[in-house]
Simulated assay, not measured.
Amino acid sequence: MLQCLPVYPDAAWWKFYNVYLVIIQYFVPMIILDTAYTMIAVKIWTMSKSRVDETNPANQK
């Protein structure tokens, strides 16, 4: 049975490449999604808080 396997001159390079892939394929998208969801949550929270303040008769002059 014949197999084609990658041959790298240094095992450390292969480890670095795997770490790089994990960062690019997992952590970068996770940070982007976390940032987007946090921005959405803050926007909704501030809008709902201002809406509650508008409907509270004690805050009206």
Rank of each mutant, 00 (worst) to 15 (best):
L5C: 02
V52M: 06
Y17V: 01
W45C: 02
I44K: 12
Y26W: 03
V52A: 08
F27E: 14
E54R: 15
M30W: 09
P9E: 15
I24F: 03
I31S: 08
Q25H: 10
Y37F: 14
V22F: 12
A12D: 12
D34C: 04
Q3V: 07
E54S: 10
P29W: 06
S50V: 01
A11E: 13
N56F: 02
M1K: 04
K49N: 03
I24W: 05
T55C: 06
T46Y: 09
T38C: 13
T55W: 06
K43F: 11
A41I: 01
M39H: 02
I24M: 09
Y20F: 13
V28T: 04
Y8C: 06
M39R: 05
S50K: 15
P29T: 10
I44Y: 13
K49Q: 04
T55Q: 13
D53C: 03
D10Y: 10
I40R: 11
K15V: 06
Y8T: 08
V52C: 01
I24Y: 06
T35Q: 03
M30V: 11
T38P: 00
K61M: 06
I40M: 13
F27I: 14
S48W: 04
T46C: 05
L5T: 09
F27R: 05
K61C: 02
Q60C: 01
I31P: 00
M1S: 08
V7L: 12
K49C: 01
W45P: 00
I32F: 12
E54F: 04
L5E: 14
T55I: 02
T38D: 04
Q25I: 01
I23R: 05
V22G: 07
L5M: 09
M39I: 08
A12Q: 13
D53L: 15
S50I: 01
V22H: 06
K61W: 07
K15F: 01
A36C: 02
W14D: 09
F16N: 15
V22E: 09
M47Y: 04
N56H: 02
I40E: 11
L21P: 00
F27C: 05
P29S: 09
L2E: 13
S48A: 14
W13C: 01
